[in-house]
């Protein structure tokens, strides 16, 4: 990969990739592997970018597609494929961010299904329901209901976590 492409086209949007990859990984090593894979695929697919959408939206789309079809290395843990609802004790990435609340939120997000993680990440990034539906390829009408349900689940998970910590 040309370093110029990485510096000028990917790095300014690294935040998007980091936020998505963190939601699909449970430890630093996996996160770095996913991040590299997404960057590699962006570089490989850059010629297929058509100016119909923004570069950042295109990165969201591609990052999600890559994370959804990433094959985790054998040495780590094959459970990743069936890891729709990871128990908190299986997650070794609880201090990825400086902000403790974000770490807790990510812990809760990682317990969602693959698609719910994508929906909530896009929602939190202030994408409209229409944009979320377009990126994921689903019906816009159902996104609102799904977001509501995911938020309820996250609130519940966060409260449970807090209660446990408190008591």
């Amino acid at each position: 990969m040309g370093s110029d492409f990485y510096i000028f086209s990917i790095l300014p949007h690294a935040g998007i990739i980091i936020k998505i990859c963190r939601a699909y990984t449970n430890n630093q090593q996996d996160f770095e592997d996913y991040y590299q894979e997404v960057c590699l695929q962006i570089w490989r697919s850059k010629d297929s970018f058509k100016q119909q959408s923004q570069w950042s939206t295109w990165i969201y789309r591609l990052s999600l597609n890559v994370c959804l079809t990433y094959l985790k290395k054998k040495k780590n843990n094959d459970k990743q494929f069936a890891s729709d609802s990871l128990p908190p004790e299986a997650i070794d990435d609880s201090h990825a961010f400086v902000d403790e609340s974000i770490n807790q939120l990510y812990m809760a997000i990682r317990q969602l299904t693959e698609i719910d993680r994508a929906v909530i990440l896009l929602y939190l990034e202030e994408k409209s329901y229409q944009e979320i539906a377009e990126i994921i390829g689903t019906n816009q009408n159902n996104i609102g209901v799904r977001v509501k349900r995911i938020k309820e689940r996250l609130n519940k998970l966060l409260n449970i976590t807090n209660d446990e910590e408190g008591g």
Binding site: M1, Y6, L11, A14, G15, I17, I18, K19, F31, E32, D33, Y35, Q36, E37, C39, L40, Q41, W43, V66, T69, Y70, L71, K72, K73, F97, V98, D99, S101, I102, Q104, L105, L124
Partner: peptide, 27 residues
């Protein structure tokens, strides 16, 4: 939580990537 957590860009540190082109894809 989301807004506050990412208000500072330093919260998002990209990992260092080396020799990316020669890495085998896991996709």
């Amino acid at each position: 939580i989301w807004k506050k957590g990412f208000v500072d860009n330093k919260a998002l540190i990209a990992p260092k990537i080396n020799d990316l082109y020669n890495k085998k894809s896991q996709n």
